[in-house]
Design a protein around this nucleic acid. Structure first.
Lengths: 153, 153
DNA sequence: TCTCTCTTTATAACGATTATAATTAAAGGG
DNA sequence: CCCTTTAATTATAATCGTTATAAAGAGAGA
């Protein structure tokens, strides 16, 4: 069976890049933390555990490369740092985020939800959409009324 | 007739801040460039024309203050800088943006468009929405087919 | 093995933003 | 009006995230 790493390796080769040990270690960390929204520094600290000799600049360059190949998406929630988020395999569009103002949690919405809005924007503003960023800021289900349920995520 | 500045002054007073000459100059620049999406540095350079003695730190502090009072919105388009955007008076929500990947233009969408999406998110994810950020990246009407029309903005 | 190219490392540089200390301005009370 | 207190500003240094640089290393092909 072909693993996710193998497929990423092929994507790199297709763009004539190699999957070096450092790049592989970085990708593994991203795969192991798919739920999280790690900053470059976060990734660096985690990668050091499995590849202690790696440098911070290499992590930055690798994340930049993966962003360019659309394997990860770079996103910014308004704190001073960029965060990196693995794109779902085969996903046409970037997923959305819910940022809790109370506890800081970041949840993901994989559903598209924007189809209608995008149709309107493309037609009415004659704008050819290539990508989007949608983030809601508010109070998450955990911080809302404690009797509330964990919603269908 | 009460001017926009007067109303902003009242908002400041209501939060027990003063509209100092430096703050007033900064607000004037923002009002004069409502169409643009100025960075702090941009604002600083423009303010210096009408208040040459102002310091960069004061501009940063003023913008931070205005953001806190929800008079302006701080936004980040992925280049390294924060930009500041006057909120429409009485607008419940922050407006959306169209960023052109070709020419870099940033157009605004004042229409809400997200009502349905927000209803779904609030119910299905039990998330109490306070604010949002929606940005589309793509090709603007100017860079699209040149026979195209300036859309209804 | 030699050479060429890509990649990495370590470190310096950079740019945006924030913190600090000293100064100034304004506000309220006697 | 002066005195005191507090808020705001200035100039500058410090900080932090990120990017650039130069030297070293690793791998592929001749």
């Amino acid at each position: 069976m072909e693993t996710r790493i193998d497929r990423i390796k092929k994507q790199l080769h297709a763009a004539s890049y190699k999957l070096t040990p450092q790049r592989e270690a970085t990708v593994r960390i991203l795969l192991d933390h798919e739920e999280d929204h790690l900053s470059a520094e976060d990734v660096y600290l985690l990668v050091k555990d499995i590849a202690p000799e790696i440098g911070l600049a290499t992590v930055y360059r690798t994340l930049e490369l993966l962003t360019e190949l659309k394997i990860v998406d770079k996103i910014n929630f308004g704190d001073g740092v960029s965060r990196y988020d693995l794109r779902q395999e085969g996903a046409a569009h970037f997923h959305h985020h819910l940022v809790c103002l109370e506890c800081g949690a970041v949840d993901e919405i994989q559903e598209d939800l924007l189809e209608d809005v995008e149709n309107i924007v493309e037609k009415r503003w004659n704008f050819q959409i290539k990508d989007h960023r949608l983030t809601f800021h508010g109070i998450c289900w955990r911080c809302n009324d404690s009797s509330s349920q964990n919603p269908s995520e």
